[in-house]
């Protein structure tokens, strides 16, 4: 009986996680749907995928991370970079929590911030530095770092939301 309830809860929880990822992708990718002061961007999918992986078991967390990346790819011109990146960070986040760290707000802030910063730096290197644009530093300082800081602000909210789902449908 307990197994049936557990199984039902796991299904509901994962459906809710998929919905959270869909809403997050829509908020991130639709102009005017989420407030972005000073024309900066916001990356909500990375914290969402990382925190889901921290709470979920390895394989479902990994698959949800890949799904988040594929969703992000539908908004971009790249040919699958986001899916690859999100799969790696989702698996990495699960591995860190499973083997090395505790799952709490501080570790979530740390893992999400590092994942966001790494993404931004990779994106910036690929799209500005390697193309030899002279103003690459300005772009990093005026756009991508404020975007990073603005995204970090929402990590606790996303953490609380996912933890609530997890607690109710464990």
């Amino acid at each position: 009986m307990n197994y049936v309830i557990e199984n039902k809860n796991a299904i509901i929880r994962r459906v809710l996680f998929v919905l959270i990822l869909l809403v997050t992708a829509a908020l991130q990718g639709t102009a005017g749907l989420f407030p972005t002061p000073g024309n900066i961007g916001v990356f909500l999918l990375i914290p969402a995928a990382v925190i889901i992986s921290m709470f979920e078991r390895g394989i479902p967390g990994l698959l949800l991370g890949t799904f988040a990346g594929l969703l992000w790819d539908t908004y971009t011109t790249g040919f699958g970079f986001n899916a690859i990146y999100m799969t790696i960070i989702a698996f990495g986040a699960w591995g860190l929590i499973h083997y090395l760290m505790r799952n709490n707000l501080s570790t979530a802030m740390l893992i999400c911030s590092v994942s966001l910063l790494l993404y931004i730096l990779l994106y910036w290197l690929w799209n500005y530095v390697f193309k030899g644009y002279g103003t690459a530093w300005q772009v990093l300082i005026k756009y991508y770092l404020p975007t990073f800081l603005y995204s970090v602000v929402f990590i606790p909210l996303i953490y609380l939301l996912i933890r609530t789902v997890m607690k109710n449908f464990r």
């Binding site: 992708a25 829509a26 639709t30 749907l33 790819d73 539908t74 040919f79 699958g80």
Partner: peptide
Amino acid sequence: SPFTSAVSFIFSRVQRLSARLA
């Protein structure tokens, strides 16, 4: 990527809905 293509085929309605909402 074919995977992105498949996801966009399935979830393009969500994107249209969010664009309309915005």
